[in-house]
């Protein structure tokens, strides 16, 4: 069990590393070229894995819309590579994850035509609270400064 926990954590680290490296490349080559390299190198790597495993599924009855993921992926890596060096790895990760989980809740709502479970709503509230924390603390600090203007330097 511990092995799988560590494996899943390592996965998160690999995602972070991948996005950070692509971000670094974008500072040299631009965000869209970083997206090309990410996909070409990933494709070569996965081709090698497929050749070793020799598992080719039957791909005859796949809806064309299912391939739209490639389009979203290309755009995602470009956008992500652009913001990563600008915001820093931590802030960029936090914001991307927020957008990811909030949109997932919204899409589930629309698809299932029901409100999210209470625990999920609590999760949404926590994410939104987290995102607004910098604003809240900045405002609090401003008030403190206003209270004692003589001490302001």
């Amino acid at each position: 069990m511990l092995f799988f926990v560590l494996l899943a954590l390592l996965n998160g680290v690999l995602i972070g590393a991948s996005r950070t490296i692509n971000g670094q490349l974008s500072t040299r080559a631009g965000a869209f070229r970083a997206s090309v390299w990410n996909h070409v190198v990933g494709l070569v790597f996965l081709s090698a894995v497929l050749l070793v495993l020799r598992t080719w599924p039957d791909v005859t009855d796949v809806p064309v819309a299912a391939y739209a993921g490639g389009v979203f992926g290309a755009l995602f890596v470009a956008v992500n590579s652009y913001v990563f060096p600008r915001l820093g790895a931590m802030s960029a990760s936090v914001l991307v994850i927020s957008g990811q989980v909030l949109s997932a809740v919204l899409i589930d709502c629309v698809q299932q035509r029901t409100l999210p479970a209470p625990i999920r709503l609590a999760g949404v509230a926590l994410v939104l609270l987290g995102l607004s924390l910098p604003r809240i603390t900045a405002r609090l600090r401003q008030k403190e400064i206003q209270k004692c203007p003589t001490e302001q330097k």
């Binding site: 993921g69 979203f72 956008v79 913001v83 914001l95 927020s98 957008g99 990811q100 909030l102 949109s103």
Partner: peptide
């Protein structure tokens, strides 16, 4: 843009 990136990621995961 970063938040929009997360939305793109959800759409990608979905398809």
């Amino acid at each position: 843009l970063a938040i929009a990136g997360g939305v793109l990621l959800t759409l990608m995961t979905l398809s």
